[in-house]
Write a protein that binds this DNA or RNA. Structure first.
Length: 932
DNA sequence: CATCTCACG
DNA sequence: GACGTACGTGAGATGA
């Protein structure tokens, strides 16, 4: 016996249950915790070097601790209804895995773990306790580690010290003093973990603290310790784990043996864990980290160790490779007959501007999918003579339908009005097919459907949706194409693997479509999807494709200028520090400022690293610390250079000379878009140096950039949705709302108002939109918290409607789990019913902000959708190219400037009809800075 | 891959 | 009385 794994089964069940989205078997039995548990066990068994493994469970709620203290764990709620049937299943799962499931009357799993840990140590074995329960940390020692299986993190003495302030041997004493609200352990009132650690450090142990209580200076603390000494001793008995249970299962029986594969498969299939079952079938379960030989997949190139867990063929998975035109025609005819077909492209790149089509997959029925290779080449490391030269007839190239012949057939299908095409992120496929002059219509998008139905709840990538809705673990791209340096483009993937991967994508897409589309009606989200999101797909596709012209020469000059100035600053900084170091490293900088130079500055929480953010440095700079000011300058220039000048130059598409961002439709929790590769929504504007980067965004010759942005759209929405008469009036009359707020809250006259007072009112208005807190406002304005609290009180007194709106919004979020925008978009709010007040407060602020931010997003989306048609009807050639949340940027021919200005303004201002007017500011210029 | 920092609305 | 803070994003550099 060398290494014993003791798994805290009961602890894991709860975490898996709360950590994983709901899943159920076809018969309705919930199985998410079981799934998480089995995944965890399989991973452990596969990776561990342990020779003895057991899973320990609580048996009943009553244990010996209830005899000592009847209220022990009395505050625990009943387990959720969906969890109850899973307790037994998890035990079944353990046995199916060939592992002992041990529990004992009157004791908790923790006591069993303590006892077996002692026994294992007596046998001279190492122990790993798989759990993240802090109550088990008392067992950690030189030969005993804990492992958090969900976070995959080892917990040793250092981590215990991080949590409790002192080592594992003091955990019991600290818990005895601090108590534990989740287990209802009383401890001593007014003493938390921090104070407890300090006391134990000072007096050695609990008895020392209680004996020395008289000498404690703080009166309250002294009194509590004297009065509650017995409670502390009782608490110690409750938290101390029993390592002397007369266990009746011998530790020798924990020895790892080969699981009974048929029994395990039967169990997995009964839970409908098809992907896990497939994994077991294809790879087996191999303890000791020694994988059994994998049956060589046909055509597996070079027998790479990263062999993919490709599921076996079987019912519900009938994937076909199409290599001749007749079969393709037959397939297309079937799809036309059905009227709905899922489509997915495989390409050589995620960058749509560079990607070349490699193959297409289709699915017209669940489990019935095909893959049509179009540009596959031979396998990579085979052809020593193939230097990867373009379209050279690689010796190993497989049989394929000539690309253009196949595309001509597919064009008829994809452009057929009578056939609905379903994609997962179909904007990508539209880009690819557009190169070959193929459009896709009509279409639906499962990613967008999921975003409309469940935005804010989870991501909307296919792998995640498959896991969530189908309980299916999809084949990962890495599994077929490899990863890192060894990754190949999809045209180098062997066809047998390509089929399984690509056809699965189409199959999954079709299945998801079946599950999601119908829900729109029941959940009253048809209009959001059909008028707001689905039409936006092609609008965004066109914007991305058009791109924006960026002046590389200008950026290069700027970059060189920055490089020189960064070098100068760096020398000065090193001189001030007395030696060289990496200015870009917050760690090194923090040590220089606060250790070497001994400046006053606080540690930051979690990781114990010094904070060196701009706020901290500005504080120091204000105290005339030269190095801080220099670092701030350095940071600004380094940021501009690395994130903007240099990165943007690299992003210019050589073919178009333009930058083509990607707008993510399903990334945010509020309904906003997000932009990436490059992000065009965070181009600098607030500083003079930063604006120089904006100047490099230019219009093509004979054109101008037009920037149109909504004026104070979020405040206007607030006035409308919260129905605040004073605010609505102010907007109707075109008054300065910040000044008006100042007049109302601070009671100062509008005439001759101090700009500082107006600034404070503006901060309050912004704060309201963000779900105001005294702390946040105080920090923003640099005032004290009580003072900020007074401002907020004064504000709410003047605008009681705002408070009512906030309360209603929070109540709705708590009741439904989501809030709704003006146009019916649902924003789900994670954590709104959390017990932890910090997290709940956070969720409440998000809930208050979401309808406002999301409503503004709805409005500009409506404008974006209307704009192309309106421009076309007016005979204008102006085109939208960028969106920055409340701003649209168009590229406009010189002679259309006036017409386009009027039309864009009209479309944007009429995108919604609120009880306040919408106002749009328009600017024109040769570059973005000028236009803005 | 997590963390820190910082750019935007 | 503690929690740990204004809302929403994406990207680059560091360092494990």
């Amino acid at each position: 016996m060398k290494h014993v794994f003791l798994i805290d089964g009961s602890g894991f069940i709860f975490r898996a249950f709360h950590g994983l989205p709901p899943m159920s078997r076809p018969d309705g039995t919930p199985v998410n915790a079981v799934y998480g548990f089995v995944m965890m066990l399989m991973k452990l068994v596969e990776e561990t070097d342990a020779d003895h493994i057991a899973v320990l469970f609580d048996r009943a709620r009553k244990t010996f601790r209830n005899d000592i203290y009847p209220d022990y764990k009395a505050n625990r709620a009943e387990p959720p209804e969906d969890l109850i049937p899973q307790f037994a299943l998890v035990r079944d799962a353990t046995r199916a895995m060939g592992l002992p499931a041990v529990d004992m009357d009157g004791f908790e799993a923790d006591d069993l773990i303590a006892t077996y840990t002692r026994i294992a140590l007596e046998r001279d074995a190492d122990v790993t306790i798989v759990s993240s329960d802090k109550d088990l940390m008392q067992l950690v020692g030189p030969r005993v580690n804990m492992m958090d299986a969900m976070k995959n993190r080892l917990i040793g003495p250092d981590e215990v010290r991080e949590k409790f302030g002192l080592g594992p041997d003091k955990v019991v004493d600290i818990q005895a003093l601090a108590g534990d609200s989740s287990d209802n352990i009383p401890g001593v009132r007014g003493i938390g973990v921090k104070t407890a650690a300090q006391l134990i450090e000072q007096f050695g142990d609990l008895d020392g603290v209680l004996a020395g209580a008289e000498s404690i200076p703080q009166p309250k603390r002294r009194q509590s310790l004297i009065e509650q000494a017995d409670m502390a001793r009782l608490s110690r008995r409750l938290v101390t784990l029993r390592d002397d249970i007369p266990v009746d299962v011998d530790i020798d029986s924990f020895d790892v043996r080969e699981p009974n594969a048929p029994a395990l498969l039967k169990f997995l299939e009964a839970q409908n864990f098809r992907s896990l079952a497939a994994k077991v079938k294809s790879r087996g379960v191999h303890p000791h980290g020694k994988p059994k030989e994998v049956s060589p997949a046909t055509g597996d190139v070079g027998g790479k160790p990263s062999a993919a867990p490709i599921a076996e063929e079987g019912p519900g998975r009938n994937y076909e490779l199409i290599q001749d035109i007749e079969t393709l025609k037959r397939w297309i005819a079937e799809a036309e007959e059905k009227g709905v077909v899922a489509v997915d492209c495989e390409t050589t790149s995620l960058d749509v501007m560079r990607a070349e089509i490699v193959g297409v997959s289709l699915a017209y029925e669940e489990g019935r999918a095909c893959y049509i290779p179009l540009a596959h080449k031979g396998a990579p490391d085979q052809g020593a003579l193939d230097f990867g030269a373009g379209d050279a007839p690689a010796t190993g190239a497989p049989k394929q339908i000539p690309r253009d012949l196949a595309l001509a057939q597919l064009k008829m299908l994809l452009e057929d009005d009578g056939v609905l095409k379903v994609g997962q992120n179909i904007k990508y496929d539209m880009h690819i097919f557009q190169k070959y002059d193929i459009s896709i219509a009509p279409y639906d998008d499962t990613m967008v459907l999921s975003f409309v139905l469940e935005g804010g709840l989870h991501g909307h990538g296919m792998d995640e949706l498959a896991r969530l809705h189908l309980g299916l673990e999809t084949i990962k791209f890495k599994d077929v194409a490899g990863s890192g340096k060894a990754q190949v483009t999809f045209d180098r993937v062997a066809l047998d693997k390509a089929v399984e991967y690509a056809a699965e994508d189409a199959d999954v897409t079709l299945r998801l479509f079946g599950l999601l589309k119908g829900r729109l009606v029941h959940e009253r989200l048809v209009s959001v999807y059909e008028t707001l999101e689905r039409p936006l797909v092609t609008v965004l596709k066109d914007m991305e494709r058009h791109g924006v012209l960026v002046d590389a020469v200008q950026l290069k000059d700027l970059s060189d200028d920055f490089t020189a100035r960064i070098g100068d600053l760096e020398r000065e900084i090193h001189a001030l520090a007395g030696h060289e170091f990496n200015v870009a490293s917050p760690k090194q900088l923090g040590e220089i400022l606060f250790d070497e130079m001994g400046l006053a500055g606080a540690k930051k929480g979690k990781t114990g690293a010094y904070g060196t953010g701009a706020e901290v440095l500005e504080e120091l700079a204000a105290q005339d610390v030269k190095i801080a000011a220099k670092v701030l300058d350095w940071r600004q220039l380094a940021k501009l250079k690395s994130t903007y000048t240099d990165a943007l130059i690299k992003q210019i598409d050589p073919a178009t000379g333009r930058v083509h961002t990607s707008f993510a439709m399903a990334a945010t929790s509020t309904g906003r878009l997000a932009s990436s590769d490059p992000n065009v929504q965070n181009i600098p504007v607030r500083t003079e140096e930063g604006r120089k980067i904006r100047r490099a965004f230019i219009a093509k010759p004979g054109h101008k950039l037009l920037s149109a942005d909504y004026s104070q759209i979020e405040l206007r929405l607030l006035a409308h949705v919260a129905d605040i008469d004073a605010l609505k009036d102010a907007f109707a009359k075109g008054q300065d709302v910040h000044a008006m707020t100042a007049a109302q809250v601070f009671g100062v006259p509008l005439e001759g108002m101090d700009p500082m007072v107006r600034r404070q009112a503006k901060a309050i208005n912004f704060g309201i939109i963000y779900g105001i807190s005294a702390f946040g406002l105080a920090r923003q304005l640099g005032i004290s918290r009580p003072e900020a609290a007074r401002y907020i009180d004064a504000y709410f007194e003047r605008y009681p409607g705002i408070r009512a709106y906030m309360d209603e919004t929070k109540a709705a979020a708590r009741r439904d789990g989501y809030v709704t925008t003006l146009f019916g978009r649902r924003c789900h709010v994670a954590g709104i019913n959390e017990k932890n007040p910090a997290r709940r407060n956070f969720a409440e602020r998000a809930a208050i902000n979401a309808p406002i931010q999301g409503g503004a997003a709805d409005i500009i989306k409506r404008a974006m959708i209307h704009l192309p048609g309106a421009l076309a009807r007016a005979g204008l050639k102006a085109v939208s190219i960028l969106q920055v949340h409340d701003e649209l940027i168009l590229e406009v021919p010189d002679n259309e400037c006036d017409d386009a200005t009027a039309l864009v303004r009209a479309v944007m201002e009429n995108a919604a009809h609120l009880e306040v007017p919408l106002l749009v500011d328009v600017g024109l210029g040769y570059n973005w800075e000028q236009a803005h």
